[in-house]
Design a binder for these strands. Sequence first.
DNA 1: GTGAAAGCGCTAACAC
DNA 2: GTGTTAGCGCTTTCAC
Lengths: 349, 349
Amino acid sequence: MKRGAATRGRRGHGAVLIEDVARLAGVSAITVSRTLNKPQVVALSTRKAVQAAVDRLGYIPNRLAGNLASTQTRTVGLVIPSLFSNIFADSVRGMTDVLGREGYELLLGVTDDSLDTEMKHVVSFLGQRVDGIILTGGLHQKRTRQLLLKSGMPVVETNVMLSNPIDMVVGYSNEEAGYAMTRHLAGCGYRRIGLVTTPTQNNDRALARRTGYLRALREFRLVQRDSLFAEATLTVAHGARAFREMLSSNPDVEVVFLAHDMLAAGAMFEAGRRGLRVPEDIGVAGFDDLDIAQEFVPPLTTVRTQRYAIGSTAARMLLQRIRGEVVPCTAVDMGFEIVQRDSTRRPPV
Amino acid sequence: MKRGAATRGRRGHGAVLIEDVARLAGVSAITVSRTLNKPQVVALSTRKAVQAAVDRLGYIPNRLAGNLASTQTRTVGLVIPSLFSNIFADSVRGMTDVLGREGYELLLGVTDDSLDTEMKHVVSFLGQRVDGIILTGGLHQKRTRQLLLKSGMPVVETNVMLSNPIDMVVGYSNEEAGYAMTRHLAGCGYRRIGLVTTPTQNNDRALARRTGYLRALREFRLVQRDSLFAEATLTVAHGARAFREMLSSNPDVEVVFLAHDMLAAGAMFEAGRRGLRVPEDIGVAGFDDLDIAQEFVPPLTTVRTQRYAIGSTAARMLLQRIRGEVVPCTAVDMGFEIVQRDSTRRPPV
DNA sequence: GTGAAAGCGCTAACAC
DNA sequence: GTGTTAGCGCTTTCAC
């Protein structure tokens, strides 16, 4: 049962070729190809004979060869910053649901917020002649953008709105979301509002959320103070730490807006450990509306985004472009929603 | 800036070919190929000339053609059941860290615990001539196993230990882990221990954890009762519900072991909502030791596994096999560890 | 160290 | 409907 290294590798000695199937079925290679790719143009009887031969031989077409000849790969490249976040899980699910139905595969590149790594993945995708590429965010190396534009590759940038997209965008305005939550908190009577985002370096979503927050501070004449802003890498522990540090440098802070529910989770736990009551002693708000948000005691006020729909829409737009169909709208704003729960004071009625 | 569908698609009109580079550099195509793939066999001066031409033209080799000719793709196919779990995030990180270093890409297939979907992904991977495949668990459609065996594809099954692997395995014994935690809880004086796993259908990891639990119940003469076992799909809310239902059907239950930290999270929250003190009124134990486990109030007793190492080891073994090197050990048990924290009673000293 | 010829295994294009 | 021919764009021989 166990085979040594010798039998593995290189082209399987016994690899079945399209010619073998053709011979067995008594047809030509191209007829086998057609049976597999465009069955409707093949006579039923031939089709059956071919299918029988395929099954008998266990023929698995070499897609490398097929793709080379047909210049399409039925593969989409996806670049995401991190796997450590259910926000991408939902989106990826949306994509695979749509793409899988059409027989497309997903090639995955994780960047950890490095623009160089992103570029490497894009180059690799271009080299593999993927049919389309989905990126996260709108911040890329200049060369990444050039390559993509020059190649004419269908591209969707996601989770942002962009005035000058490479090709298509689907997402929401992170700035408006940051602004909206801050405004909402102001409306609840909070004046000293802290913000914790994930690291803003190379992350235009985090940056935009902060921009929105700052704009709201100005607009509603809220307390502006450098120490009311902090960054934390995306772990519950770092959320807790950022919250703790913000409390110690701002004993008067009334509510902390952590721009990711997992950071907010850390804050909730930290509040619990210090015996602070939420929202009586301190308010906590999150971002994403992960499944966990409504389970907290008290449930977490947060920003809900359309993660799944962003993924499925991105996939759908990409397919349209790949097929050469007209894409009715190349910039789709899926919006967001403030979800008021009990981790922050209620607005006056 | 914006281009219509017309300019996109088919082979980019302006696609630079290896011939173009060769001409510009004043060498033959094969020399360009060598410069890119085996630079050490090319004279430095030639190398420089070729590199200059490559840069000037922005040449990106067509890997489809290259792969077809060389019969290797530098691509590894990965099949995972779900993205909704940071446990895979860690493992995937381990894989991409190792594979990325060697210029390998990851092709991702998500199954949602469907063996048919798994098979589809495997067939697709075989068709694309990936260099190796990483699977989750050891439970597959018969045909999946046959195809893999017949193809001679390097394969690693992960997150389990197997007596009869397809090729290689790296993971840990889920049964032993389930057993160990149950034994640990028995050692803490618990006699009525509930278990909640993720759905066991088509999931040999969940099934094995339960098997270990049942074995411990027998061995330590603990209370055996059907209603002390439940399944919950992997969301915090379902963890909470399963916990709630278990309490209502077993008011005397002393501790609930939820075989995934996110389910345990639901239980912790539910306990909080009902005013139950953990561990005084009820114990809660989890599985995975996610980052969040130690942040709970009280911190969560759980089972720690080597997620990152499982991924990186799987990748390393696969690379060895792909390169035709001897794989010193084709079944690696990374083990696990019971992490006693304050969500369960302490064992007597 | 470099090149010429011969494929890799399919499918597009065009005939019949 | 089906077959023939000619590539797709590289890399593998095997010379030199």
